[in-house]
């Protein structure tokens, strides 16, 4: 028996010629050259997060947190493509060990709802439904985080669904978390520049999905346009301003069209970046709508993907 682990409960942005901070938050003077922004902050992270609460809440008045740029007023009940309202909900908060070895055990907090519609989403019922799960309570979650850290958790992971669409709640949560905790931002990398400005310096690690190697597959399987440009922009930004692990979930029949171009781009534009190649594709949720997704990834596909990674000299992590 072979155990193949996959923890892609969230899914996982081309090219800013030079990644830069789009909005300078108050109270902060970040050092752009630092790979560990938090340690360079003149204020504690929780204080910085608290200072952004109002700004984050105001972003819902004309929501452009993700790259769909819906522009809806979520405060008055308008819904964008993600269908998220003002109040966030959480469908899982527990200690987990399936993620990258350097991060586990991690206390993973999963927000309901997502801005993508991936047919193969492993948590589709919660990720496609922003009303799934329980009401978000920052104080209660922070208490759970403290217990998990005392139990031996190495990191705290914020994920979804997609947490970007709930940035006001995320920032409220960060303001309540211990400053010494190692915070991981698990994202589909489809956030906007506005979202990046709000996130800047708050997370130690970006664990970012790079799901599709071309816009056609992204549109067909996740109903998202202009995918590669958005994801690449976010990856470049994340690499410049935090630790970054790029995660790709191998999909059956998509090694050549998706993994090969991703591997080539990473080798060219983000040399040395940590890459997590995941083999635990699971044909559930809406995969029945796509013929090639009816099966698991084959051993041949896994071997071929690994060979491509080796040819591109990627820095694979487990």
């Amino acid at each position: 028996m072979v155990s193949e682990l996959s923890s892609f409960h969230v899914q996982g942005r081309a090219a800013v010629s030079s990644p830069r901070r789009l909005l300078q938050p108050p109270l902060c003077d970040f050092s752009a050259s630092s790979g560990a922004l938090r340690t360079a902050l003149p204020y504690q992270r929780s204080v910085v997060a608290a200072a952004r609460n109002v700004q984050a809440r105001d972003a819902l008045l004309n929501c452009r947190l993700c790259a769909h740029h819906c522009g809806v007023n979520r405060i008055v009940g308008e819904l964008g493509l993600c269908h998220a309202g003002v109040s966030a909900r959480v469908f899982s908060a527990q200690l987990e060990v399936a993620d990258e070895l350097e991060l586990i055990p991690t206390f993973a907090i999963a927000f309901s709802g997502c801005d993508l519609r991936c047919a193969f989403c492993i948590t589709g019922a919660q990720s496609w439904n922003a009303r799934a799960g329980e009401s978000f309570d920052a104080i209660q979650l922070a208490a759970k985080v403290r217990r998990a850290l005392a139990r031996g958790a190495r990191s705290v992971m914020i994920l979804g669904g997609e947490p970007t669409i709930h940035l006001p709640s995320v920032i409220e949560l960060v303001s309540a978390l211990p400053d010494e905790a190692r915070l991981v931002w698990k994202t589909n990398a489809h956030g906007s520049g506005e979202a990046r400005a709000l996130l800047d310096g708050l997370f130690d690690v970006w664990l970012a999905d790079c799901k599709f190697g071309n816009d056609e597959c992204a549109q067909r399987l996740a109903r998202v346009p202009n995918y590669t440009a958005v994801v690449r922009e976010n990856l470049l930004w994340a690499r410049a301003y935090s630790e970054l692990i790029v995660r790709h979930l191998l999909m059956p029949g998509h090694v050549e069209c998706c993994w090969r171009p991703i591997a080539a781009w990473l080798a060219s534009e983000l040399p040395g970046v940590k890459v997590s190649l995941r083999g635990g594709f699971w044909p559930g949720w809406q995969t029945k709508r796509h013929a090639e997704l009816h099966r698991m990834v084959s051993a041949d596909e896994v071997q071929y993907a690994a060979r491509l990674a080796e040819e591109c000299e990627l820095n694979l992590v487990k």
């Binding site: 028996m1 923890s7 409960h9 527990q94 987990e96 399936a98 055990p105 635990g280 699971w282 698991m296």
Partner: peptide, 16 residues
């Protein structure tokens, strides 16, 4: 967990 006929086990949200 997803247990395959060949004995492979796929897991997500894996707890300690």
């Amino acid at each position: 967990l997803l247990i395959m006929p060949d004995g492979k086990i796929y897991a997500h949200n894996l707890t300690p």
